[in-house]
Design a protein around this nucleic acid. Structure first.
Lengths: 155, 155
DNA sequence: CCTTCACCTTACGTTCACGTAAAGTTTGAG
DNA sequence: CTCAAACTTTACGTGAACGTAAGGTGAAGG
C-alpha cells in the first residue's frame, strides 16, 4: 500500500490501457525485460519506470506501425543507449571510450530519427492534401452563399 | 499492347509493389470495387485510375495504421465524395441539394482530417523529442572536442 | 490451331498478436 | 489462519491479412 513500486500486472494493464495477457506476451517475446530472478509462480511486480517503458513501447508501436519484432530491434537500440548512459554517468571513463559511446548512441538515434522523419513527412503531406481539398469544398460553399440568385424553386 | 487501360493483375501488383493475391483479397472484402459484370473466370482488367486508387489505399493503410475494415469505412467516405463530385459536375442541381452535397463531403473530409491531424501531431512530437535527444548527445560530443586536455593515456 | 504464360477459383495453410479456458498458487485483507 | 481476488503457467483458440497449392481457363504470339 505504498505509493510506488508495488504495481501488479493488472494495475499496470489498467494504467496503460491494455491487458495482462499482452504484457506477459511482450515479456515472452523479449519486448519487455523479464524481471530478473522471479521464482516461477510468483507474481510479477512493476515499478513506475517500467510502466513508463511500457507506455513508450505502446506509443512507438502505434505511431510507427511496425511489427513487434521490428519494434524489438528499435528498442534494443534504446537499451543500448540506456547502457551507454549508465556508463557515461561514471566519470572515470577515458575520453576515447566516452567518444565511442556517444557516437554509438548518436547512430542509434539517427536510425530512429530517419524512420520517424520519413513517416512524419508522409503524414504531413497527406494532411496538407486533405486540408487543400477541404479548402476547395469550403470555397464552393461560400460561393453558394454569395450568389443565391437564380432558381429558388425547391422542386 | 496499347499504352493504357490494358493492365492485368500481375502488372498492377508489380506497379504498386504488392501481390496479385492481395489485390484479389482486397476486392474480396470489398476494399476494391469488383469490376462490374466480369464473367467468372475471365481475367481482371485494370485502368490507370484503378492503379492510382490502389496506391492510395495502400498509402492510407500504411500511414494510418488501421485495419482493412476501418480503412473500408474511411474509403466509403471517399466513395461518397466521388459520387458527390459526379453529381456536382452536372449543373442542373438545385442549390439546396448542392449545398447538402458539399456539406456532406465536408463532413467526410473533416473526419479524415481529424484522424490524420492527430496522428501527425503525435508523430511530430516524437520527432521533436528525438531531435532534442540528438542535440544533447551532439552537444556532449562537442564538449569532448573543445576540452581534450587531461589524460591522453590510452589504457 | 497450338502453345505457353498468366490468370482464374477454391480451399486449405500460416504468421502475428493476442484471447480464453483450466487448474493450481500467491497475496493481502479481515 | 482463512479466504476471495488476483495472480501463475500451460495450452489451445481466434481474427486479420494474406501465402500457397491444385486443377482448370483465357489470351496473345507464332
Amino acid at each position: 500500500m505504498s505509493e510506488t513500486g508495488a504495481l501488479r500486472i493488472g494495475d499496470v494493464a489498467r494504467l496503460v490501457g491494455t491487458t495482462p495477457r499482452t504484457i506477459r506476451y511482450y515479456e515472452e517475446i523479449g519486448l519487455l525485460p523479464e524481471a530478473t530472478a522471479r521464482p516461477s509462480g510468483q507474481h510479477r511486480s512493476y515499478s513506475e519506470a517500467e510502466v513508463e517503458r511500457l507506455r513508450e513501447v505502446m506509443r512507438l508501436k502505434s505511431l510507427l506501425g511496425v511489427s513487434l519484432e521490428e519494434l524489438k530491434t528499435l528498442l534494443s537500440a534504446e537499451e543500448a543507449r540506456a547502457v551507454v548512459r549508465a556508463q557515461l554517468r561514471r566519470d572515470d571513463v577515458h575520453p576515447e571510450r566516452r567518444r565511442a559511446l556517444l557516437t554509438e548512441a548518436l547512430g542509434h538515434i539517427d536510425r530512429q530519427l530517419e524512420l520517424v522523419e520519413h513517416r512524419a513527412g508522409e503524414l504531413a503531406k497527406l494532411e496538407q492534401e486533405l486540408s487543400e481539398t477541404r479548402k476547395r469544398v469550403r470555397g464552393k460553399l461560400r460561393e453558394l452563399d454569395k450568389a443565391p440568385a437564380e432558381a429558388f424553386t425547391t422542386t
